[in-house]
Amino acid sequence: MIAPDWFREDRLPHIYCTGCGNGTVLNCTLAAVEEMGWERSETAFISGIGCSSRAPGYILADSLHTTHGRALAFATGVKMAKPDLNVVVFTGDGDLAAIGGNHFIHACRRNVDMTVVCMNNQIYGMTGGQGSPTTPLGAISTTTPYGASEPAFDLAELAVAAGANYVARWTSYHVKELTRAVTTGMQTPGLAFIEVRTQCPTNYGRHNKLRSVPAMIEHLRSHAMLVEKRDRLAREGRPIPEGTFTVGELVRRNRPAMGVKQ
């Protein structure tokens, strides 16, 4: 087990389904916390509602499991009251971009000093597989039985546009790269947003011809394209393959931030 000092072992095994990517993201985030050498007493984990948002319940540190979509609002409050705390937010695509969309853009705009890890499984996992703002075009969900017809949000690009100091995207397959990105995010003052494309075999894979867990991971792996490669293709005027998404560091900058530790 990774980071045994940070897991509430008495709460394991966790509630996640077989092969759910959320457990992997939790491993990588805690590995990053361990690498940072943070003390348990100076670290708080905050989340909203959803499968992804249950993550803090498995961590041996103070946590807030708040209302749906409001994780960033609570986290901003925590940071304003106690800027010395290290704040990590776990959230899902529905939690962050649907009901919590406004909190998301404003937390990025304010550049509140915290690390936000979004487990983007492109679906409302917990409530039975309704479409979310990141469900890709054509995907089947319980609310889009004929295929999603609305364009999806690109969460990482949204965070870049809204002003976050650090933005990266990886998948639950890229465990080493993801851990490094979360660590870099934690080191960067201001808001660090790390989007993780994860698999929800139960409520996404099952309806979209990706029944097995390895099939879902293979889909993530083969559709991920390094930002550098995408930029090179664009420069050379070559086509960017359909259905791919960028992975890597999208931005690292030094805009004025709020709530930075003195």
Binding site: M1, I2, G23, T24, N27, C28, V175
Partner: peptide
Amino acid sequence: GVCHMICPDQAIA
């Protein structure tokens, strides 16, 4: 250690 990191159920040691 990639098996250990990807194992979503913290079962490898």
